[in-house]
């Protein structure tokens, strides 16, 4: 059985259809990119899986558990870690405190009135920060970090819950090209090493075609193509409606890169 199974998701806002019969599956250790133009329904699908939205129809199964309609906090307990299009962190805290917070929550310590939060799970947090290359910044206020670094910290936060699935909404948005490649490499490495499935959206075609194992193309809320990068790149429908000239160039460039 696949790690994540999405079956027949429908969602409409008023009269506007945001998702129609969206189905796909994702294996552990696999990177699946969801692409499509603005308004294609990527965020809707993400938010349904993450628990922020409830679908009109369809279901989402994570590691054998149906998680459709569960609140985000419950979905997280089932093993889903997520990053957001606009990074969501605890802006008043230091870098390590952000990760500590997630760890405390994961270990059921967040409600404690007796412990002191300052040192709790600090070593573990620094360990996770080390994984994303942010250990040196551990004690800096997160508000002082560059945006690319904030996104790395967000990844560390998402990893705190020992996720089976990572949901990453435009993980490289707002980053310099060099940073993007580094982050995607980091994510791909983690996914393979820890057998984490990664579902991500991206506008940067180099990142998509360079790192995704499979690609899902959404258009007006429907899946119009899916498959390995090469197949999707060659799909004439995708070329016509989505990739266009510049996108194609980027996709090709990524495909030929070592």
């Amino acid at each position: 059985m696949s790690l994540l199974m999405v079956e027949g998701l429908d969602k409409a806002f008023g009269g506007v259809i945001a998702a129609r019969a969206v189905s796909f599956a994702l294996e552990a250790g696999e990177l699946l990119a969801v692409i499509g133009p603005n308004g294609a329904g990527k965020s809707t699908v993400f938010n349904i899986i993450g628990g922020q939205l409830r679908p009109d129809a369809g279901r989402v199964v994570l590691a054998g558990d149906t998680i459709t309609g569960l609140a985000p906090r419950a979905v997280w307990r089932k093993g889903l870690g997520r990053t957001f299009q606009v990074a969501q962190t605890f802006i008043s805290m230091s870098v390590t405190e952000n990760v500590q917070m997630a760890l405390m929550s994961w270990h059921g310590e967040a409600a404690s009135l007796t412990a002191s939060a300052a040192g709790l799970r600090r070593a573990e947090a620094i360990g996770l920060l080390g994984l994303v290359g942010m250990a040196e910044a551990a004690d800096r206020p997160i508000s002082a970090l560059a945006y690319g670094d904030v996104k790395r910290v967000e990844l560390a936060i998402a990893l705190a819950g020992e996720p089976k699935l990572l949901l990453m909404d435009e993980p490289t948005a707002g980053m310099a090209p060099k940073e993007r490649a580094a982050l995607m490499q980091l994510v791909a490495g983690l996914a393979r090493e820890r057998k984490i499935g990664v579902l991500f959206t991206e506008h940067d075609m180099a990142a998509v075609f360079g790192h995704a194992d499979r690609i899902l193309v959404l258009m007006h809320g429907e899946v119009i193509a899916s498959g390995p990068p090469d197949a999707v790149r060659r799909d004439p429908k995708v070329r016509d409606v989505y990739l266009g000239e510049s996108g194609l160039a980027a996709a090709n460039a990524a495909g030929t890169a070592p």
Binding site: R73, Q88, M93, E97, S105, A110, S112, L113, A115, A118
Partner: peptide
Amino acid sequence: RHAIYAPFGATLRAARDSAVRADAIGID
């Protein structure tokens, strides 16, 4: 004051800073 310094207080601040993020790491 101790409650503020305890994980409970930190969790409240976390929820204040970003309710979306707090929800996504399992905080009600």
